[in-house]
């Protein structure tokens, strides 16, 4: 009946398992998929990312202006666009969107 008592005393002596988020933020793992970012200087606005996106989160226009728009609320952060980009202008920032 008292099998967890030892564990209770151990927990009283040990450190917290949680952090005081948002005052203390864990550094993201290298290669984590946090948010999608674009390098607009390299982008050729070909629209492949928009066509391949499973969630239709990206919109690319060529006329009248060349634009690349991401709807962050639709993005499922799968990084499929990063993979198919012919110019490799897209990349994943390990920092999550809320950490700014």
């Amino acid at each position: 009946m008292f099998t967890i008592i030892g564990n209770v005393f151990k927990n009283l002596r040990s450190k917290y398992a949680t952090r005081l988020y948002p005052y203390e933020v864990r550094t993201p793992f290298a290669g984590a998929r946090g948010k999608l970012e674009i390098d607009p200087d390299i982008c050729i606005y070909c629209g492949i990312c928009a066509k391949r996106c499973p969630a239709n989160a990206i919109a690319v226009t060529r006329k009248p202006d060349k634009t690349w728009t991401l709807d962050p609320y639709r993005c499922i952060v799968c990084s499929y666009c990063v993979e198919v980009c012919p110019k490799k202008c897209l990349h994943m920032n390990p920092k999550h969107r809320s950490q700014e």
Binding site: F29, G31, A32, I76, V77, S79, P94
Partner: peptide, 11 residues
């Protein structure tokens, strides 16, 4: 997360 980049939806 360390090996794939995501916690649940590994992708």
């Amino acid at each position: 997360e360390a090996t794939t980049g995501a916690r649940v939806l590994l992708g």
